[in-house]
Design a protein around this nucleic acid. Structure first.
Lengths: 191, 191
DNA sequence: TAAAGAACTTAACCTAGATTAAGTGCTTTT
DNA sequence: AAAAGCACTTAATCTAGGTTAAGTTCTTTA
């Protein structure tokens, strides 16, 4: 459980009492690979913080094509932000890719915490600022870089994860078909 | 100046004193079309709130191709978030597209305000949450929808703006060349 | 441990959108 | 009011990446 406190300590400092209060609002669970933490169409009631293992979020287009929005491994947060913030049904699935220990923070508890420990308002603001910046960068990359360079950036950013998740999901994340990804990989190996 | 207070009142309520304090940290200016509020390579020292007129942010790839990241019209905020948050040099330009009255909030003043009026921490958190959700949606749209549907979504979201900014910039925003956009438009008109 | 099904590859063919280029009508500048 | 330059169009040609399909290998599951 220390990991999440370390994470917070990077941006705001909590007193021991505040830490205890914070921890009391969390629930830790272990899930096997393939568990669905969230189904499309549901309201996302929790934010997840990954202690270990890997999660991914994705949606399914016209009931056919999956599109991976994000991966989360150790130390990352994951949720369907649209649904979580608005408490309306969302379009995302959240799935366990590799057996994971996950800390859950419910929307109600989060709102409570904002009132009880206003410093957390700052912590989550900064967290979301960073997400937004990363997302904008990814959007610009998608608009301006060819698949090969998007893949390069992916491996730099996610490092080890690139070897742990099925290739077709990396393909989906960077926005190409598995077939094209395979072709591209073969091309890269020749160099 | 009322517009920015209305904007805040949608998410948090400030006392008259707090409102006055907030306003005292702002500066309002009018800029002619084509003015550059931020140059790539500079540190973004202000966040801009648009009272009237239109701004856009974009970057230039390999010194050749412009990519529009966002437009801002009445009631919207604009900045190079990466550079503004980190206070490091960024890659974005911010340009006035249509003569604009713009409220500037400096990074230092914003940090000051967070300390003096903690409620603002909440306001900006929510603002950024909404941005993030919109950005993720746009990213998913870029991964899964053809240009024609991206354009449709654009016109729905930005409405009137679609007629006020040069077509080539809308093309850039949705991620196609001006030539293809023109062809697509002709195709749409035939229907 | 056999059978079914994922995950990945390869290859032929296809298409959305890019590139190049030439031409038309605006605006802006002088 | 010319001249220059920008925004837009059209059209021919090209290509990154998609689609379809068949085959191989690895994993699950019964």
């Amino acid at each position: 459980m220390a990991l999440i406190l370390e994470n917070i300590a990077k941006h705001v400092s909590l007193t021991p009492d505040e830490q205890a209060l914070f921890l009391s609002k969390l629930e830790t669970n272990t899930y096997k690979a393939k568990t669905l933490l969230l189904n499309a169409g549901e309201v996302c009631k929790h934010s997840y913080f990954v202690n270990s293992g890997i999660l991914r979020s994705f949606n399914i287009n016209d009931n056919i094509v999956e599109h991976v929005l994000s991966f989360a491994c150790e130390g990352w947060w994951m949720s369907d932000m649209y649904s979580y913030f608005s408490q309306k049904p969302g379009q995302l699935f959240i799935e366990v890719l590799e057996e994971a220990e996950v800390v859950s923070l419910s929307k109600e508890n989060q709102e409570q915490l904002y009132l009880e420990i206003p410093k957390l308002e700052r912590f989550f603001r900064i967290l979301i600022e960073n997400s937004l910046v990363a997302n904008q960068q990814r959007l610009m990359d998608n608009l301006s870089l060819p698949a090969e360079e998007r893949f390069e950036k992916f491996t730099k950013k996610y490092g080890t994860l690139a070897h742990k998740v099925p290739q077709k999901q990396i393909a989906s994340f960077i926005g190409v078909t598995p077939e094209f990804f395979s072709k591209m990989k073969a091309r890269l190996l020749k160099k």
